[in-house]
Design a binder for these strands. Structure first.
Length: 302
DNA sequence: TTCCAGGGTAACG
DNA sequence: CGTTACCATGGA
C-alpha cells in the first residue's frame, strides 16, 4: 500500500494474472446497478467504515497496480487498512490464478474462456446480507428483473450519499429490513415468499444467529453449506452462490444454475442445455477451481 | 401469445 | 419418500 498525493490516494499492487478492464466489464454489466458506478475505465463505490462514508474511485494507472482515490474525505490510517483489505477481497487479489490457467489449457470448456478473459477475477461480494439478498432476489427470474428489484430495495431502504450531484448508495442494513413486514416488499413487486425470506434472513443476522464470521469459523465447506441450507429461502443453488461469491470457497459450484447451463450450451455449441450429469463430467477436473470456472462461464454471457 | 428466467417451498399422492 | 403447483414479472 503505497501512499501518494498527500494521502488522498494509495496504490495496491496487483498479481500477475490480473486485468482491471476485464473486472470492470463485469461490474458494468447492468445499467441498473446501484452499488457501484463504472465510467471511463474507473469504478466508484461508497464504502462505510466505522460509521463514516468514504467514496472510493478505483483506476488502474499501470498493469501492475490499482489506484484508490478518496473523493469526499481522506480516511485515517485505520480506515485505510480496512479499505485496503476490502478491495483485495472485492477483486480477489490474493488468489494465484496460475494453477487454474494451467488446468484450463487442457479443458475443452475453459480453454477459450481463459484466453478471451485473461486476468478476469471472481468479483466478491464481501457482505453476507447483501450477497444472500441478491441471490434470493435472483431466484427464478431473469437478471434484468433481478437488478430492478435490487434497485428498488436499495432506493427504498438503503443509505444515500450525494457527491457532485450524483447519488451513491449503501445496501440496506439488516436492522432496517428486519423491521419490515412482507407487504412492504410486496409493494416493490417482490413475491410474498421472497419478501418473507429476506426479512427472515435480516432478523437472523440482526439477532446475531448467523454471521459471516460464524460461518467462516466452521471446519469445512460442507458444514457451512448445511448451515446455510437451514435458512428458509436458501436452497442448494443459493447456498453455493453464497459460498462462491461471499465466503471465498473456491470449490463451490452452483451446478443447478440456469445461466451456467446456457453458458455451457453456448460454449460447446450444443443444441440443448447440458444435463446435470453431463456438467458433472465436464467439471470433473476442476477440483478447487469450480467457483472460478463458473464465474468465467458467467462472464461469457455478458 | 407463449415460454423461460443465475429456485425454493409447501402441498400433495 | 418423489412429484407438482405456485410464485410475479420482463424479455425473447
Amino acid at each position: 500500500m503505497n501512499k501518494c498525493q498527500a494521502n488522498k490516494s494509495f496504490h495496491i499492487s496487483t498479481p500477475k494474472e490480473f486485468s482491471f478492464r476485464e473486472c470492470l466489464q463485469f461490474l458494468a454489466r447492468s445499467r441498473l446497478e446501484k452499488l457501484h458506478f463504472v465510467e471511463n475505465d474507473r469504478v466508484r463505490k461508497l464504502f462505510k467504515s466505522a460509521g463514516k462514508n468514504f467514496l472510493l474511485e478505483l483506476t488502474s494507472p499501470s498493469a501492475t497496480s490499482i489506484q484508490v482515490e478518496f473523493l469526499n474525505t481522506v480516511p485515517a490510517q485505520s480506515h485505510k487498512t480496512t479499505i485496503y483489505a476490502y478491495i483485495r477481497e472485492w477483486f480477489d487479489l490474493d488468489t494465484d490464478l496460475a494453477p487454474f490457467y494451467k488446468l484450463a489449457e487442457n479443458d475443452s470448456l475453459l480453454k477459450n474462456l481463459v484466453r478471451q478473459f485473461y486476468g478476469f477475477r471472481l468479483l466478491k461480494m464481501p457482505d453476507l446480507f447483501e450477497t444472500a439478498c441478491w441471490s434470493i432476489i435472483g431466484q427464478q427470474i431473469n437478471l434484468t428483473f433481478a437488478y430492478t428489484l435490487q434497485k428498488r430495495l436499495i432506493e427504498a431502504y438503503g443509505q444515500r450519499y450525494e457527491f457532485n450531484q450524483r447519488a451513491y448508495w449503501l445496501f440496506p442494513f439488516p436492522n432496517v429490513i428486519a423491521e419490515l413486514s412482507p407487504s412492504d416488499l410486496r409493494q416493490l413487486q417482490f413475491t410474498g415468499k421472497k419478501a418473507e425470506y429476506i426479512i427472515g434472513l435480516a432478523r437472523l443476522i440482526q439477532e446475531g444467529k448467523i454471521s459471516k464470521a460464524s460461518l467462516l469459523a466452521l471446519p469445512n465447506i460442507e458444514a457451512v453449506r448445511s448451515e446455510l441450507l437451514k435458512i428458509r429461502g436458501i436452497g442448494p443453488w443459493t447456498a453455493n452462490y453464497i459460498l462462491m461469491r461471499c465466503l471465498g470457497f473456491s470449490s463451490a459450484f452452483p451446478i443447478e444454475d440456469i445461466g451456467l447451463h446456457n453458458a455451457i450450451k453456448r460454449q460447446l455449441n450444443l443444441t440443448r442445455k447440458p444435463t446435470i450429469a453431463e456438467i458433472r463430467q465436464l467439471s470433473a477436473g476442476w477440483q478447487n477451481w469450480q467457483a472460478y470456472a463458473a464465474f468465467y462461464l458467467y462472464r461469457s454471457l455478458i
